[in-house]
Design a protein around this nucleic acid. Structure first.
Lengths: 221, 221
DNA sequence: GTCTATACAGAGATAGAC
DNA sequence: GTCTATCTCTGTATAGAC
């Protein structure tokens, strides 16, 4: 998905391609600080003051690079979609469903571990009604879901998996995996530890793969 | 869960029990307006001005009733936990797992339909690290999860369901159901409709129950 | 009990010195 | 290109008239 949406976001928000080394470096520092603040307080709740302080740069530097607060937020979102483009796969009806689904689950869990902040910014944006993303993402997402659903339907028609509702199946996989990034606080409380370890993520992957694959009539891959 | 936490939240934030009719009425109006604003912008992002305007009451009225912004937010959270107490069940090892799990799934889906705002406020709070709930909820949640996990483990030991990880199983059910409230925007895009209908929620329930029950070795209930 | 007026801190954004 | 100083608006909260 998202390929076109990401491009449009970039065009709308990203700063010039050619940039000095100092500028490039500063922008990276600012984006990282902004990511943290937006993840903790949402778009409105985050302040440029706090971002500037976290980045160790003057506030007007941020405004010079990104024009205004919406521009900065857009750049952060653009970065996030960038990463998703890389990690989201193009499964076809010819692929083995057990293989494709389990590798998707594992990728999403790994992603929620490596980029928890990105995932949370995205989650907050969606929960709040996606006021800044709607224009860029609504259509593309619909198309993407449609395309993925068609593949799942083809597997059903070929008798490879149970006749479940493809779209709700995707919601389920999405929701179950996303949980580990977005609701990490709750997961930490429940497991009684500050930081999840390799074994926890392994257990998560195994549990999800077992239930989801078996649940649609497949053997573990 | 949450029984004690909710009581403590109430003690900390709720206003006097005895209250005039006007006050009670106004408080209800304010809480409803606050719920909407907090759900759309988070704690920091929501403003008392916007809440007052939405409620059609002067801002100082809000501050008189709830003391300050944190007090108002606490009252909203307290209301939410109130509702959860009612809808969250006490399953024991003696219960039939297929029956218990599927009725839990159905209850959560129904809840996310009837109280989407409450669910979203809670979600944003957790995603942002639960700064206002941590003190009230962390221990109770851990105990609650431990108790529920013990029941699931008992079912495993009795050979009634597959040997999955109980805690991660619960995360999965939680995440998959929660999704319909929190990420409603995304669901609407994907399904291409502004409002979900009875049939959509029915399809969600059926899909989740099918996959989850079958996935742990149970026949549909 | 209720609301108007206002204090004061912090927000985003700009002008202009360097 | 970069940063200091500042403008203006909105934020929460309070004082005090009614």
């Amino acid at each position: 998905m998202v390929d076109q949406a990401q491009k449009r976001l970039k065009e709308a928000f990203q700063t010039k391609e050619k940039a000095g080394r100092i500028r490039q470096q500063n922008e990276a520092i600012i984006l990282e600080a902004a990511e943290t603040e937006f993840a903790h307080h949402g778009f409105r709740g985050a302040s440029l003051n706090a971002i500037a302080e976290r980045a160790g740069l003057p506030k007007s530097n941020i405004l010079y690079y990104f024009h205004n607060k919406v521009g900065l937020y857009g750049a952060v979102l653009s970065d996030i979609l960038d990463m998703w483009n890389q990690s989201f796969n193009n499964v076809t009806a010819k692929d083995d469903p057990a293989e494709a689904i389990s590798s998707y689950i594992r990728a999403k869990i790994r992603y929620s571990r490596s980029h928890p902040l990105a995932s949370r910014i995205f989650a907050i944006e969606i929960i709040q009604g996606a006021p800044h993303l709607k224009a860029f993402l609504a259509e593309e997402l619909s198309e993407w879901v449609g395309g993925r659903a068609a593949v799942i339907q083809a597997w059903i028609d070929a008798g490879k998996i149970d006749a479940i509702d493809p779209v709700h199946f995707m919601f389920m996989v999405w929701g179950a995996t996303q949980h580990y990034a977005d609701f990490a606080t709750q997961v930490h409380w429940a497991l009684g530890k500050e930081q999840l370890e390799d074994t926890d993520f392994k257990a998560a992957e195994e549990t999800l793969c077992h239930i989801i694959l078996k649940g649609i009539g497949l053997a573990p891959a």
